[in-house]
Simulated scan of single mutants.
Amino acid sequence: MKLNRTTQRTVDILKLISRSPEGATLDDLCEKLDLPKTSAYDIVTTLAEMGMVNVKRGQKQNYTIGLMSYRIGVNYTNNLNFIGTIEPILKAFAKEVGKTVFFGVPSDHHVVYICKFEPENPIITTATVGSKNPMYCTSLGKVILAYSEDEKREQMISRIKFTQFTERTIKDRDQLLKELEEVRERGYAFDAREMEEHMQCVGAPVFDRDGNVLGAISMSTLYKPVEDYEALGKLISQKAMEVSRLLGYLGKI
């Protein structure tokens, strides 16, 4: 069977970019894949228009894997029944705690919401399945950063542009690194009204069978001064560990 050369090159480009969290330039693609520059440019430009890759413009354009590629990957994951495995647990958990529960995964220096489970009387949240938010001001993103390997964490943090959403939003790298240390100490993270003034969230990491952070789960609630958020943190940590073990995680050796 004769294979289409452009299709092969497109797949090779996506594979290379997906393995490069820091991104790849056009020169990188041409050098590593031995491609003519005009052909590589036409392919990545088309991929960018389709949302398959993201483009960071600078002295040289830098390409990272796009949200559309991730959504396609999620569909594959769904077919493996990964979501089907955790869905009943998180759906029951949302009902038990009476709060909206999310499962999210990293995408570059953002977190993408893969699942959303609501109780019988849900609060209105702006996050929807498929949407993404910055890592540095979400409980999901903070635990993913905190438990990622050092090199990967540094790559993600280096791409963050700190924006103030509320007066409580983390302002810079040093403040973020200090908070990530606290997250690792207690095992869960807060979004202490950093994205929205009225919303408080708490999240904990989910690990795969190899002990790598796969994503995170969180619960969202309207901020209440009388709420015991530390207790909620411990509760969601237990649930995140239950989910991790369902996925084959046996604990750190």
Rank of each mutant, 00 (worst) to 15 (best):
Q238R: 06
A48I: 01
G23W: 08
E185G: 11
R168Q: 14
M50I: 11
N81D: 10
L176G: 06
R159N: 11
D108P: 06
R153K: 15
D28V: 02
I123L: 08
Q61K: 12
D150Y: 01
P106Q: 11
N133Y: 02
I83N: 10
D172S: 15
S20E: 11
T6Y: 12
S18R: 14
P134G: 11
K234V: 01
V243C: 02
T100A: 02
L67K: 15
Q8F: 03
I114H: 12
D228K: 05
D42H: 15
P21D: 08
V213T: 00
Q61Y: 13
E196Y: 14
G98E: 04
K91C: 06
C115V: 02
E182Q: 06
G51P: 05
S218T: 00
V129A: 00
K142Q: 06
N81V: 03
H109I: 04
K99W: 02
L80Y: 09
M199W: 06
G130K: 01
I160Q: 03
T125H: 03
L235F: 02
K161F: 06
V202P: 11
K2M: 10
M199Y: 12
D172V: 00
E242A: 00
T125V: 07
E49T: 11
V226F: 09
T126I: 07
K152A: 05
D210F: 14
N133E: 05
E118F: 05
S244E: 08
G211R: 11
K32H: 11
Q155L: 07
E149N: 09
E120R: 13
Y249M: 04
I43N: 04
V183A: 09
Y70H: 04
G84F: 00
L180V: 08
G187S: 14
R186P: 09
D174R: 13
H110S: 01
S218E: 09
V206I: 05
S131C: 06
L250W: 12
D42I: 14
E31A: 08
G84V: 00
Q164D: 10
I236K: 14
L232F: 14
V112K: 12
F103E: 02
G98R: 03
L177D: 10
H109S: 13
V206E: 12
R159D: 00
T169G: 06
Y70P: 02
K234I: 01
R5G: 05
V53M: 07
D208M: 05
L250F: 03
S139N: 09
E118W: 03
T25K: 13
E179C: 11
V111M: 05
S220V: 01
I160T: 08
S39M: 10
F190Q: 10
K171G: 13
S18P: 01
N81L: 00
K95P: 07
I89C: 10
E185Q: 14
I217Q: 02
E154R: 01
S237T: 09
E31H: 15
T46I: 07
L247W: 15
L29T: 03
T126K: 14
I89Q: 15
R71W: 13
V202A: 01
M1P: 06
E151K: 12
K2I: 14
